Amino acid sequence: MLNPREWTEEYVSSLPVGEFDWLEVKGRRGLDLTLPQVTESAVRETLAKAISAFANSGGGILVYGLANPTEIWAVDDGGVDLKVKGSGTREWLEDVIPTLVEFPLTTFNVYAIQRVSENSELAPGRGLLIIEIGDSDTAPHQSVIDHRYYARIGGKSRPLPHRLVADIFNRRRDPQIQIDFWFEEAERRSNFPVLQGQRPIIDTHLHFRATNVGRVLANYVNVVLYLPMSLMPETNLAGGENRELDGKEYLVLTKRNSRRDVVGSEGFSPRYGPSWFDPILPGRSQTWDIFVRDMLWPDHVWDEEIIWELYADNGAVTRGKVAVREISMKT
């Protein structure tokens, strides 16, 4: 799709017809204050509702000046007057939009498509108004007209229930961490060379990664893993503790976004300093790996599940699980 700043009258007529969460189209009467019975209060009310909905739903585009289509969009009655206010319709929208929601909206653009040829359906002095609303960092946004929060649901702007409003607040305040897993087979590292004719030892590792997919830095991340004992080697090198859950035995491990610097050595072994938390920035991740049994597992192991609990700063605890057979093998 073209950037809205590049839209033309012809391009707008080719937009998909229907109701979409990312697009809302209104006719001339939705904005043109030069028409009788079109009041500024009504325009502000419907505009505030749409702005709140798009800003709370990841952004979208609002178009004024198109008629309800049969097959394709057409200009409604010559389009919207480009001077509904003294400074111009586009300039008036740029001034009024930030004031229609609380918190004030900053991530938006307004464009006007004007008549450029004799074949245009736009009348002289009229046009199509395109309002592009971005994904807002300060959501949720409340309409200042009716003091409601809206979102785009099923192609319409609908009031948000309290639970979803609270969820949007938390997304802005707390880090959003995504967990994923994969297996990998790797040759065991050794300080001694492999002798001629000797086969290298292949170990199986379970890797898991915590990725910050939100916009807030994650200072403290704790991941508690419940690993089926049937997945673990007979000699436990991972630490943790054994625990029974729903009649099954698990090894419970806790991993944190902490690191320890090497501060010296003791014989052939490194000596580590105290641990410190390494924050996970938005878009960044931290990965851990755990030794597991080799891949020649009996069928029942593939049906086992890994359970995890995630604690990130002061956010709500999130929980999940994944079947062993659903975890990919990296080659």
Rank of each mutant, 00 (worst) to 15 (best):
G273M: 12
P270C: 09
P274W: 13
N257H: 04
E241Q: 13
S258L: 04
E249W: 06
D261N: 12
S269K: 15
K248P: 00
F268L: 13
N257M: 05
L253M: 07
W276R: 12
W276M: 03
P274G: 06
G240V: 07
K255T: 01
E249C: 04
T254D: 07
D261S: 11
G240A: 11
K248Y: 13
G264K: 07
V263N: 08
L253F: 03
V262S: 05
Y272I: 05
N257D: 05
F277Q: 03
G240L: 06
G267W: 11
K248N: 07
L245K: 07
D246W: 12
R243T: 08
W276E: 06
R260K: 15
F277T: 01
L253W: 04
K255Y: 07
E249V: 03
R243W: 06
R260M: 10
Y250A: 00
D261P: 00
V262L: 08
P270I: 12
S269L: 15
Y250W: 10
G240M: 07
G264F: 12
D246E: 15
E241R: 14
R271D: 04
W276D: 03
P274C: 04
R260W: 00
S269C: 03
D246H: 09
L253R: 05
V263H: 09
K255R: 15
F277I: 02
N242F: 12
L253N: 03
R271C: 03
R271K: 15
G247S: 06
P274E: 15
